[in-house]
């Protein structure tokens, strides 16, 4: 026992200041939400459409837009064109799919219009995670929120073993044909009301696997999604901030 106590003292208090006291400590080379400068992008149209590996860049009315829901943050576009910049904005999650489309450089994280989850589960949200073809990166970075560095339990967010205990289903992966039935059954097994979170580019839009012959239906065509968390994989702070925003706790601290 003394050894364990001594070790505990040595290791110290390790829960980070995010999100209570400070924005997350992000690496120098972090790629957050994109900012688009239409003027500077104008002459790069062809190049940009060509360079994106997931076809997240599109054009309409002479304007270029970048779909953060598809983006895998490889930054090949920013390498080619200085009109696109990936900043330090980690608060990427949105309740509506269209809020993930970027065509300018202004941004405030959207707050939930539907307050039902905040009302019922704002202080205690039980999540059942389902991996439906995910590569394990989204799963791992969601799982770290359980470690003492992030400690999402202090906000009442907890992972539960059974869908019967879940308020919310968090899905990762592009929904493979082979997981479709298990995903539907898990959803059906959860008591109503139940909310759905799409975590990572694959779950949000199909991501890299949008064209796969083994991933035919997109998550949003199968279940109504209440929160989209972009990223490949999303940074843990992006996931936590998104879930807390959905719970009615307001937007996370801004990263200046």
């Amino acid at each position: 026992m003394w050894k364990a106590l001594k070790a505990r003292l040595y290791q110290g208090y390790r829960t980070g200041n995010f999100p209570v006291k400070a924005p997350p400590a992000l690496p120098e080379r972090f790629a957050g939400r994109a900012e688009v400068d239409q003027e500077k992008c104008a002459e790069y149209k062809e190049v940009l459409a060509e360079v994106c590996p997931v076809k997240a860049i599109s054009f309409s009315d002479g304007k270029i837009s970048l779909d953060m829901g598809k983006c895998i943050f490889c930054r090949k576009c920013a390498e080619k064109c200085e009109g696109i910049r990936f900043g330090k904005e980690y608060r990427l999650a949105a309740m509506k799919r269209e809020d993930l489309i970027v065509n300018n450089s202004y941004y405030t994280p959207p707050l939930p219009q539907d307050k039902s989850l905040a009302k019922l589960c704002g202080r205690s949200l039980k999540i059942r995670q389902v991996s439906a073809g995910g590569c394990a990166a989204c799963e791992l970075d969601f799982n770290v929120l359980n470690t003492l560095a992030w400690d999402m339990g202090r906000f009442g967010i907890q992972v539960v073993a059974s869908p019967r205990h879940a308020d919310c289903i968090l899905v990762t992966g592009p929904v493979t044909k082979n997981m479709l039935l298990a995903l539907k059954k898990t959803y059906e097994a959860a008591p109503r009301p139940v909310w759905v979170i799409a975590c990572g580019a694959c779950a949000v839009s199909g991501g890299l696997y949008e064209k796969s012959s083994q991933c035919e239906e997109k998550l949003e065509d199968i279940l109504k999604v209440d929160l989209y968390i972009p990223g490949c994989p999303p940074h843990p702070s992006t996931i936590l901030e998104g879930i807390m925003r959905l719970m009615g706790k307001g937007a996370g601290p801004e990263n200046k």
Binding site: G133, G173, P174, T176, N178, A182, Y209, S212, S213, Q214
Partner: peptide, 9 residues
């Protein structure tokens, strides 16, 4: 369950 047809892609 995780089969995404990666090699063919």
């Amino acid at each position: 369950y995780q089969h995404r047809d990666l090699e063919n892609m």
